[in-house]
Design a protein around this nucleic acid. Structure first.
Lengths: 349, 349
DNA sequence: GTGAAAGCGCTAACAA
DNA sequence: TTGTTAGCGCTTTCAC
């Protein structure tokens, strides 16, 4: 088939009776001025020919691609069904990323990478020249992410870390949220409600978020002079089956808790399901607080009390900081944004 | 700062003592053979210099970018909080898309576009030459999507439609799922359980999915010789508040239903919440069936009976069909894949 | 204010 | 088998 030949710069120049340089000046509003009359002519020619510049040629020349990548690092080995952007947090973050990139005239490339995966493929991407900047989602504790950040750093691409901070020595800006305070606030709230035996069902401890939430929980108990009972701290993965197993174990102990702080909403729901199946009333017998405040938390019966995290905002902020890093000289001051979380009181606690 | 100069083809050629053509042949395994010895030398030089080809230059030359875009068309005007990839379906599809693109050595660009939005920005993207193919998510009924598909078609980029089919005249392959049958199956199941007054709370009727689910529901009633009572068919948007309002209206009627088919799980949950708040037992007094079978459906109390849609599979298939369309001559036979849905029986019906 | 031309880094056609 | 070179489409320096 006679695939139509691409309309180029040259065609426009010829039709407008100017040089290709002028066409460029008109398109880019610079770097040099053009007379109004010529500008008009060029614009008309562009319209007439329905000319669209080649991003490839332009990028090759200018070394700018208008593309940002979202490096979604995660453990992709959990469970039988792959969960990449199905986690409520990931998708909300993505919403923020994608809207903000688009709003700024950039494109978003999405690149998932398993925590234990070889970095080769990522290296190829980073070194290919397709990217102006990257937003990288970190889930592990700081030092575990060093090889990844080391690579990004060595490629010298503007980068912003989200969810977990990277080691400060890389100098990347960071947008995180305060897991520890969230767990602290939730626990404190339960204590205020008169609970003294508060359990915690944590998530996969390979995730730094799990660690921090656990830590906030512990701190709140300590600050309230309540004992920390390891018998009522359990958890294994982010899968509901494990949360249920943890709940079961905890409730079977000598002195079962009257409240449970779950490490996430997706853990809280199966826990509630289990408790109710065992005849417990929520919150009558056991109060439950989740974490993340996914949209459905509000819609459940009973509605789930939870810790709200501004995921969309995180995505937005990350893009803006990346853009800043790209614009400013590379010694732009690095920002460490820790977004606040908020206890949303509803029906389960 | 002295940004290090890029290592190029030339550097490799010089170090290996060969011409740039040979370097290209080695990298691409063709199009012409190279002697083993030379190949070795080039590979060594590449390793030593840590050479990574410029995707830009390569693409400019070869007119292939190894990039596929996901054009996520949707109504982005609903509610106060933007919901782009937060909808369970979107994120599961994205999971399929992103894993399959990566598995095939491609990159995925994500581009949301509002149904009522100008197509200019999309046009720029499509004509920029950055894309080898696109997967476009359609949510409206067929003819409403014509301008969008017309544009893609005119750019002559391999394209696959998902969720809704596009007009056949564009010749795009299609990966959809059988909404109508899903609703039919669910309704039929309720009838088999002895229900004769079955309500339907539909979603936003601007979405073709809403229409089809409604249609399947009606058909099942008709086929069972049950009357269709418009009094117990309601709905407005995909927002929970509207679902609750619909449920309220329906239950206040003269002869309230004993079963409700909700157009989605995210609608079913608030409906259940409302019903329970009014003292109805689920499924004792009212049975409820959802649609989509989101992961949480299983974890709720009671667990939600729902229609499972293979979202991840849809994403995968779409990518593969796009790859096919790119590989084959552009007259590759178009496929219309309608993936089956499945009733998942759980606790609410 | 505008034109000519170099060159971004690569692939592949043409030579050898 | 390998080397030489044109050119993908654009931006921008150099000349006017």
């Amino acid at each position: 088939m006679p695939t139509q030949k691409r309309v180029t710069h040259q065609d426009v120049a010829k039709l407008a009776g100017v040089s290709t340089a002028v066409v460029s000046y008109v398109i880019n509003n610079g770097p040099r001025p053009t007379s109004l009359e010529v500008r008009e002519r060029v614009l008309r020619a562009i319209a007439e020919l329905d000319y669209h510049p080649s991003a490839l040629a332009r990028s090759l020349r200018s070394q700018r691609t208008n593309t940002i990548a979202f490096i979604a690092s995660d453990y992709y080995d959990v469970g039988d069904n792959i969960q990449i952007f199905t986690a409520p947090s990931s998708s909300a973050i993505l919403t923020g990323l994608v809207t903000e990139t688009k709003a700024n005239g950039y494109y978003l490339l999405v690149f998932p990478i398993g925590v234990e995966e070889e970095l080769n493929q990522l290296q190829v991407l980073l070194r290919s020249g397709r990217l102006d900047g990257v937003v990288v989602r970190l889930v592990q504790e700081s030092s575990a992410t060093d090889p990844l950040l080391e690579m990004i750093s060595s490629v010298d691409i503007p980068c912003v870390c989200i969810e977990r901070p990277g080691d400060p020595r890389f100098g990347f800006s960071t947008v995180t949220f305060d897991d520890e305070r969230g767990a602290y606030t939730a626990t404190q709230y339960l204590i205020e409600q008169g609970h003294t035996r508060i359990a915690h069902i944590h998530g996969d401890l390979r995730y730094d978020a799990s660690l921090r939430r656990l830590s906030g929980y512990r701190q709140a108990l300590t600050d309230a002079n309540l004992p920390i009972d390891e018998q009522i701290i359990a958890g294994k993965t982010w899968l509901s089956a494990d949360a249920i197993a943890a709940a079961q174990r905890i409730m079977q102990g000598d002195a079962p808790p009257t409240a449970i702080l779950a490490a996430s909403d997706t853990l809280a729901f199966p826990i509630i399901q289990f408790l109710q199946s065992q005849g417990y009333r929520i919150p009558g017998d056991v109060s439950v607080i989740g974490f993340d405040d996914i949209p459905l938390a509000r819609d459940m019966a009973p509605a789930l009390t939870s810790i709200r995290i501004p995921f969309v905002e995180i995505g937005r902020k990350a893009v803006n900081l990346t853009l800043d890093a790209m614009a400013g000289s590379s010694n732009a001051n690095t920002m460490s944004d820790v977004l606040p979380v908020e206890l949303i009181r509803r029906g389960t606690a």
